[in-house]
Design a protein around this nucleic acid. Sequence first.
DNA 1: AGTAACTCATACACGACTGTTCAACTTAGC
DNA 2: GCTAAGTTGAACAGTCGTGTATGAGTTACT
Lengths: 208, 208
Amino acid sequence: MDSEQQNGAAKARRGSSAHHPRRADAERNISAILAAATTCFGRNPNASMTEIAAAAGIGRVTLYGHFSSREALLSELMERALADVATVLNATDLDEGPADERLRTLIRSSWQLLDRNLRMLHAARRALPAEAVHDHHVGILSTMERLITRGRQEGAFRDDLPSHWLVGTVYALVQAAGDQVEAGQFTSEEALEALDATLASALRPPTP
Amino acid sequence: MDSEQQNGAAKARRGSSAHHPRRADAERNISAILAAATTCFGRNPNASMTEIAAAAGIGRVTLYGHFSSREALLSELMERALADVATVLNATDLDEGPADERLRTLIRSSWQLLDRNLRMLHAARRALPAEAVHDHHVGILSTMERLITRGRQEGAFRDDLPSHWLVGTVYALVQAAGDQVEAGQFTSEEALEALDATLASALRPPTP
DNA sequence: AGTAACTCATACACGACTGTTCAACTTAGC
DNA sequence: GCTAAGTTGAACAGTCGTGTATGAGTTACT
């Protein structure tokens, strides 16, 4: 429901850029497809095209008309979700101020996004060829690792564990928070609270 | 390769208990199936029976001869894995000594087991009916939660977050450690080290 | 050495999913 | 109101997975 028109969808159009700007109802259906697919894949990583079309309230053929294959749909979904996150990342000045505060606000500002898309992304990660997945992710992961590396140098983050593990920790806890929201044990706000507090403790340099 | 003969497999035999103790080659094949299935499901949660039979080095029909359905196989796998963990749990006196130390040794002593089985368990959890999964898990989860609750009362664990979140945190980080081992970023020992250190920080009461 | 237990390849019925085609229908846009 | 763009259900071919049956071939146990 956020970024619908410009992203990478235009690449599906034939040949040169300005051929036909797509009709309004098509645009509307594409949005419905993306929304439905996100929730469907979130519920069930093996969701079928039939299932998704039904959830979007359109015919299966129409679905294939917009996304030539299941894989294409997954890829587009992942691209859009990660693009949204990247937008948030780039909106905040990562190299300014204390790194732990930066990570904190970063998590806070992207939590809604993550909470909504994590499970879908998990599905996509499993269904797409490994290299494609990596290509989609490198941007964000490297940004994350850069922030964490800086934080370590400044003493805001612990230095006794490899940075890839710290990144993994963040990732895993975000995932866990999302799961508990889905399981009904947390509201989205409570989960963010817990996530924030736990990450702070987990990443801070240990004091023995 | 650990517990092969006694567990719940006997239930597959017909009627009364002592009918026929199963031949040696059958026993051997069952072990091969369980081992192969564990690694197959670990790699791919949707692994097919054909795939598993091939990995076990036997015919597909033989596989069905021992496990009447895919679901039965998953269920048996989960049962055995969790039984092994439960054995470790019950072997240590959970109600004695400081809770954080107990959790520490608990994680240490079951790490090998967890590392080997976590991904398979994830697959089983997704493919089995929810209630069956819950039945398999209640024992371990409640034990875990009991330990954590005690630790909170003693001040060893943080009290500012709900205990289900703390359990989830442990679970998520164990999972993350397993993933990083599988991704080749950690040896099993390094991962255990990192896991241990991170859990200690994450569960300790915060000191602001 | 003989018998019951076990294995295995082939083959079948069945269902689910993926893409594609077609021809009729509806809608948006100028 | 005309036309191109878009939608639709039905139907089809192809693939893959499950689970069952059969019959002939091995292998373990006594």
